[in-house]
Computed example of a mutant assay.
Amino acid sequence: MSPRAGSAGPHTLAFVESPVQLLNVLEWAHSNALGTPEGSAPAPGAGLTLVVLSPTDPMTRGQLRRMAELARDEGYAVRWEEARGGATAPFHTVGGLARLLRRARRIVMGDPFSRYVQLLLSITRARELVVVDDGTATMEFVAQLARGERLVRWHRRGGRPGVRDVLFAPVSGIARRRLTPTGRRSVEVFSSMPIDSAPDGVRITSNDFSWTRARFGPPRITKGADLVGTSLVETGVVDPDRYLEAVQALSKAHGATRYFAHRRESVEKLHRLAVETGLEIVRPDLPLELIARRGPIGRTILSFPSTVVHTLPLALAGTEVRVAVCDIDPTWLTQNASPRAQGFLSGVTGTARDVHRLSAVSAAL
């Protein structure tokens, strides 16, 4: 489906598993002038190959295919791997990438918590490692790296490690050590998230979504409000009934008419939202930053604590769109939610720049 790297191997290998990760690799490449000027032939020195470790979720796959087209338009090679296409798929994927991993000088990754990425890190000899945003998880990754902790997603912390966690622990440990800078290896975090402090030697560079703003928009702005969905119900953090009530209250209070679904939201939940709130459910075919920049988009964008409260103000800089974030009321959390969930979500909201902060809507429920 895609070009293969030459015998010498690419200068830079980037591994992505979600559309947002791929978008942020494009932003990183743009900021490092690795792209190809519009209308010109691909630059042979660009040396970036994007490897898509494809998930099984149809929505995510569809968005990834659209993002892969944009990457090819920029002159980059894209290698699509059916990394989860059966029990033997990981062996074929890792085996097929081993030679490229050993030759690449730089590895760019979107999710250092991914077991797949951690396994690939145990193979590479690259002297330069770059982590691009995988949403708010980047904040937790940097904090865990600074504390020397094992790499665990924030919504899973607090529970006992499972059997697979224990078996994979040696590989995860190697990955954590590889992501720790040494005299021979550099580590960069390319992020739009608010990262106040970083581990010694880790270089933090800013993602201001300059590629997105250069390629798309400015958008046509409508008079109403749009609401951004979240997968906090699907990850077991927020109770589904409380979430539906909050969406109802927010949409009524602010006159929202459209609900932009997160790619991980279940069909059943979205159907219930449509029936009980009357909102038009939109399932975007690209990351929301690109959808909003292309327009049309509401004058107000309502969101719960999530990555977009940090990224949308950057992508929409220079427009009249206002981003408003609604706090998560502690009573919405499930019994199985991580002990750190409330503090983490509050931190996501509290550190967002250029957004209007709304109090939790529990009083209106």
Rank of each mutant, 00 (worst) to 15 (best):
V132E: 00
V132H: 00
D133R: 01
D133G: 04
D133M: 05
D134L: 08
D134E: 14
G135P: 08
G135S: 05
T136S: 05
A137M: 09
T138P: 07
T138I: 08
T138W: 03
T138D: 06
M139S: 09
M139V: 13
A143N: 09
A143R: 12
A146R: 10
R147D: 13
G148P: 12
R150L: 11
V152S: 12
R153Q: 15
W154K: 09
H155M: 15
R156N: 14
R156C: 12
R157H: 14
R157M: 15
G159E: 13
R160V: 07
V163S: 13
D165I: 12
D165A: 12
V166T: 15
V166M: 14
L167G: 07
L167K: 06
F168S: 08
F168C: 12
A169K: 04
G173W: 14
G173H: 14
I174Y: 05
I174E: 03
R176V: 14
R178Y: 06
L179A: 08
T180A: 08
T180F: 09
T180Y: 08
P181V: 06
T182P: 07
G183H: 05
G183M: 05
R184V: 11
R185A: 11
R185K: 12
R185W: 10
S186Q: 12
S186T: 13
S186A: 14
E188Q: 02
V189E: 03
V189P: 01
S191M: 12
M193H: 08
I195D: 02
I195R: 01
D196T: 10
S197G: 07
A198N: 02
P199F: 06
R203T: 13
R203C: 09
I204R: 04
I204H: 08
T205M: 04
S206G: 05
S206Y: 02
S206L: 10
N207T: 10
D208V: 12
D208R: 14
D208M: 10
S210A: 14
S210H: 04
W211F: 13
W211H: 04
W211K: 02
W211Y: 12
T212C: 13
R213L: 08
R213P: 06
F216W: 11
F216I: 07
G217S: 12
P219W: 07
P219D: 10
R220E: 15
I221G: 02
T222R: 07
T222K: 04
T222H: 04
A225V: 09
D226W: 04
D226A: 05
S231T: 04
S231F: 03
S231R: 03
V233S: 00
E234H: 01
E234V: 01
T235L: 10
T235G: 02
G236F: 00
D239Y: 06
D239N: 11
D239W: 05
D239S: 06
P240A: 10
P240K: 03
P240E: 06
R242V: 02
R242W: 10
Y243L: 02
L244C: 03
E245D: 15
E245F: 10
E245K: 07
A246W: 02
A249C: 15
A249I: 08
L250C: 07
L250G: 02
L250I: 15
L250A: 05
S251K: 00
S251F: 00
K252M: 12
A253L: 14
A256M: 04
Y259F: 10
F260L: 07
H262V: 01
E265Y: 00
